[in-house]
Design a protein around this nucleic acid. Sequence first.
DNA 1: TAATATT
Length: 349
Amino acid sequence: METQLSNGPTCNNTSNGPSTMSNNCSSPVESGSIEDSKTNLIVNYLPQNMTQEELKSLFGSIGEIESCKLVRDKITGQSLGYGFVNYVDPKDAEKAINTLNGLRLQTKTIKVSYARPSSASIRDANLYVSGLPKTMTQKELEQLFSQYGRIITSRILVDQVTGVSRGVGFIRFDRRVEAEEAIKGLNCQKPPGATEPITVKFANNPSQKTSQALLSQLYQSPNRRYPGPLAQQAQPSGAPRFSPMAIDGVTSLAGINIPGHAGTGWCIFVYNLAPDADESILWQMFGPFGAVTNVKVIRDFNTNKCKGFGFVTMTNYDEAAVAIASLNGYRLGDRVLQVSFKTNKTHKA
DNA sequence: TAATATT
């Protein structure tokens, strides 16, 4: 634990997530400020539909949260895909990095790292690079740019089908001045061995998105989500499909009184969990099916071992129904899970 | 030639 912390949490890159190369591993001390917070985390690559409450619920399963904020577009209110979680205890922040960094949520692999102190100097430090040799790797790209400063993230865009580089990428520096120097030094220059010069300029800001792009984003249907890691358990072919109209996120469920519906969402009962099961397994199993607002593993007060069951709250009925259809009967280790909407029989008024 | 990381 101590070793990993001093080595920098951002070294925990995942293999296929939208993560960075591993040169951003400086500790807060090494990066020049001993005042860096050890409780405040930045969470990147959040699913588009994840809410602040869901973020808080996920990270609250680690420890007490002092504050939590999902960053949204000022105009459209759309999530910008990242947020901040500030813990009360630095130990919990460290634990969150160790347990939640790299967690797969829907189509995303989230990244959890310490937040740098907010400052104007770290803003607008993102570069768009085009004309790269198709053979250039992310590592080589970073090597080229690292002479100008500390790289926070890098990415080379690839063809989704072939996996071949599209010759364009992004480099985010720690500070804007570093990005400015990189433009001066590398724009219109040929990388070593390349036959064509590259273009290096500041990347567009998300706020500059066209209204058309915003519209397509607003109407992106959450129904197209792949059915999670457990597709073999999915409903038999021929089973009724769910209408995208019904799960557009604005369907009002307030006041509906149906078993399983708890006012804030649809409560799902998960039975036959192992004694050492924890909340993360529930997030991982149900997250791919849609908006999960809460998970809970029921534990014995004395032993702190799971009593064999837990609950998951999902916002949308259709997504909950698909999750149940897919996960009921799912084999987790050597156990076969029973998954259903929660009934009211356990606590009759 | 364009995905999102500083409240």
